[in-house]
Design a protein around this nucleic acid. Sequence first.
DNA 1: CTTGGGTCCTGTGCGC
DNA 2: TGCGCACAGGACCCAA
Length: 288
Amino acid sequence: MPELPEVETVRRGLAPVLEGARIARAQVNRPDLRWPFPERMAERLTGARIEQLRRRSKYILADLDTGETLIVHLGMSGRMIVSGGEANRDMLAQFHHLHPAPEKHDHVVIDTEAGARVTFNDARRFGAMDLCATEALEGHWLMKGIGPEPLGNGFDGPYLVAAFRGRRTPVKSALLDQKIVAGLGNIYVCEALHRAGISPLRHAGRIAAPRVAALVPVIRDVLTEAIAAGGSSLRDYRQADGELGYFQHTFRVYGREGEPCQTPGCQGKIRRTVQSGRSSFHCPACQR
DNA sequence: CTTGGGTCCTGTGCGC
DNA sequence: TGCGCACAGGACCCAA
């Protein structure tokens, strides 16, 4: 599920529930996800007030009034499930309980004093959580070396041209490299390269500078549109249950092997290739 | 330094 | 209906 737009969608869904809320209880059901949880995580969360929710790359950051920040990564299958609270209180009241029954892979459960609950569920356990002094966050080993935010000011044509210079790796891999640009994943790299007319197989350092620079606004557009789509489905979620971050999204190439290319006037067919173990989708006719 | 491959884990969908 | 296999939105680690 989670690339930058999905993480941002999750953050926006959690913000009204968590920002300004005090944690009444934190239940930690196992010692680790991808890495061990920090020492005494439940105790360090309990009683803390969440000042604000931020996002950096694919990480959700919850700044606490204790001076620490909770770092959350959703991995491949992580989900944040919201229950209780104002939005669906009436619906849940008819079932005579405040929260849905616990499910398999509910690893961390956070209750707020207002009666809302956020459950971190992650079947594959590639996700992560850590606590770090807020002022030391930028030096945290998970944050260090992450490239500029693609929707921020530090990501522009000259930057990307310089980042690609001399690279022998395929542009697909370069864009997946979080050190070059933050937050892109397999889907949106495929989508952006298609819109830019660049083959994922092309070496990053062998693309003419103007074409590289043209990738920047394309990446911005793809991500912005995806966030907008996620935002609209958020409303559906809030009245239903459990699928925050899951939204229908129409991709032009991702998962469309064998289908006709949607580029106007293009007669190509979408092809799937495997690059460093991951599927790439592109149109050999209009992506060069 | 860069680069490619292996690895962690569970769930799902497909062909037989 | 069961079984085995390929594959899934991430990213660290290590060898070359």
